[in-house]
Nucleic acid binder design. Sequence first.
RNA 1: GCGCCGGUCGGAUAGCGGCUAUUCCAGGAGACUGUAAAUCUCCGGCUUUCGGGCAUCGGUGGUUCGAGUCCACCCCGGCGCA
Length: 427
Amino acid sequence: MFRIEQKMEKGLGRAGVLETPHGSIRTPAFVTVGTKATVKALTPEQVKETGSQVVLANTYHLYLEPGEKIVEQGGGLGKFMGWEGPTMTDSGGFQVFSLGGGSVSKVQKKHSNILKNVGMSERDEALSPLVKIDEDGVTFKSYKDGSTHRFTPERSIEIQHAIGADIIFAFDECTSPTASYEYQKEAMERTHRWAARSLERHRELKIENAKLKNADKKLSANSHELAYSKGPMLFGIVQGGRFEDLRKESARFMAGLRIDGLAPSERSEFSGFGIGGSFDKEDMGSAVRWVNELLPEEKPRHLLGIGDPLDLFGAVENGCDLFDCVAPTRQARTGSLYTRHGRFNIENAKYKNDFSPVEQGCTCYTCKHFTRAYLAHLFRSNEILANTLASIHNVHFIVNLVKQMREGIITGTFSRLKEDFFASYKK
RNA sequence: GCGCCGGUCGGAUAGCGGCUAUUCCAGGAGACUGUAAAUCUCCGGCUUUCGGGCAUCGGUGGUUCGAGUCCACCCCGGCGCA
């Protein structure tokens, strides 16, 4: 299922291949985000042309609209959205944070003011308008109409099975970076209990599904195992915030979690791991290392929600295989474009008459056909093509940056790639 | 020439005697890390010792403790009548 092709000589980085029913993913890989079963502003064909191998959608959004049953009836996530490659769904755990009020980034720069307010966050979250957490699960108020909905680990897994992605995630609580140690620990332990429940429900659904298939096709007992082995891969999510002991505790827990069934084939454990929650910008790499040193080497690791170019280097060399992030697409739509010299805002006055491409030498469709002046015009006149062309460039940039890191690992030139990039990329 | 209506930031507007002149657009800049995001924030006259201070509603006078708001005249625009 996951095969390591090449390991870095020093560091935890590795290049591998993750097999899914919808094709293989060559890792490290950037996963393009398509929350509502669409990568905003892009057709699946355009997504493919950026080099994206896999798309991640969101359980909570699809549950609210159009409803997981519709996606299921539509043939599952990939077929429904017209994407032929591998797919993933996030569990909805991130919405515990993002709908939890406040406008705090989950990645914090050290010494930022927000960290000085430690202790307020539990209260903030408790008082938040859209989310309420208890031991059993989370009560959400729909961001669309204010109606109340409830997610438990079991429910999230059921919905994800219905949505039908190749890789799904355990239901977790993504905490705020302002959370105190005490709260972070409490939330992490709850996430561990939810992980066990996610895994158990996942196992049940796979058995049910296998029995259904067997009954249908009158297959032999032997093929029971075959059918059972299909179905989505479930990744557990390591939490623990920015605290080393919690991160390590969480990694050990997730790595060791397994549920025994009646038959050996019914034993269940995670197929891979997500690394979630909040980080300090400055030592994200080491936070990831704490975790990856403890996770089993032979399983893939997905660093959730990280996509800043500089962060990606640190994560790759510390053993992460997959990344997803809304930044390339969101920033594209707000006029912020990546180049190897840094990011710039195409709406700035100086680009009105700049007839060079977004990035010299870039091979993306946008750079091959259009100028900065044209994009600036599209953005200023609010034309929807602006979003498309900008998204094509940004996604292409990030996807190919990670692809270059993969090649760097294979050819032993990762360090030089990193040095060169850090030298030219201005934050 | 007479009558009516109107003149508030680059444009469009709110304001019917009292606090810091409203909002939208355009303009300038910034933010964005598992998407409540084609979103959000800030700026916009002069001056400052960075606490603030001083201006400002076509113009000039006036009434009033206090005027963008009321009055008079003037300037400009629109409409109507000659």
